[in-house]
Amino acid sequence: MYPQQIHEYLIRFFKENNCQIVKEHDHYITVQLTIDMDKKIMNRPYYWQYIENTDGVPSPAQITLITDQNKLTEDIKGEVLHFGSPRLNQIFQATNDLGSFVHMYERVAENSNGQPILTPWLGVNYKVSYFSDQTKEMLYSLGINLMTGEMKHSFQEEIRELDLDANMPKNAFDLMYIIKPLRGLERLDAAVESLIQQDDHTWADEAKSRWQKDRQVLEHFYEAMDNKPECYEMEKKAMDEQYQTKIKLDIVNGGLFYIT
């Protein structure tokens, strides 16, 4: 992310969360946090505990975030944010917490055939991580039609440009799902697992052969010893942990979409 992208991201993030942007400059912003946002990103649980226990008057922080220190000509006091800074990571985390589950309807114009019909879909974004002594991650966005069971890949890319609204449009007719959302979720889970299974897993074989090679070297070193020292077991354990292969499956977010 470039400074400009971070800047836009922050403004969107705070606006969506009802935090007032007190000052909006090209390379920094000053924002008045809400109580909820303060709790989420300011790392001061003791303060909040204290205020709540004493019925004190809460005073959520006002912060200045500098998004491009290099282009800033004025002398502004504030926290410099960049891609990789802990505060930005916290904001990313907050975004994820606050954007995990949605329930959206497509806004549609009335057509000549009468009332438009909205079909329910379940969309889920999965992050898959492969681990050995190395890592690789993949993002799968899957959608399932809760009427027909039809499945789509890159679902998020497909719906992101649609005009969606949290409220049901008055002019449209939404179909009640036939496949229950939790059943749909199970099917998507199975689909993503099968994607994982079909994937090329030479990485795991390679990790295993690295592990075997290291293991042989270690065994050779302690071969002659009848009573192997404690550090031998320690080395073995470290090696197991280092090369152990593992796949992790996380859901980034997901939701119900009523779309044409």
């Binding site: 991201y9 969506e16 606050l98 954007g99 949605v102 966005s141 949290a166 939701g255």
Partner: peptide, 13 residues
């Protein structure tokens, strides 16, 4: 339910 803009931002991040 959560906010659609934050949902999209989260996916993008």
């Amino acid at each position: 339910w959560d906010n659609w803009t934050l949902y999209k931002m989260s996916y993008d991040v």
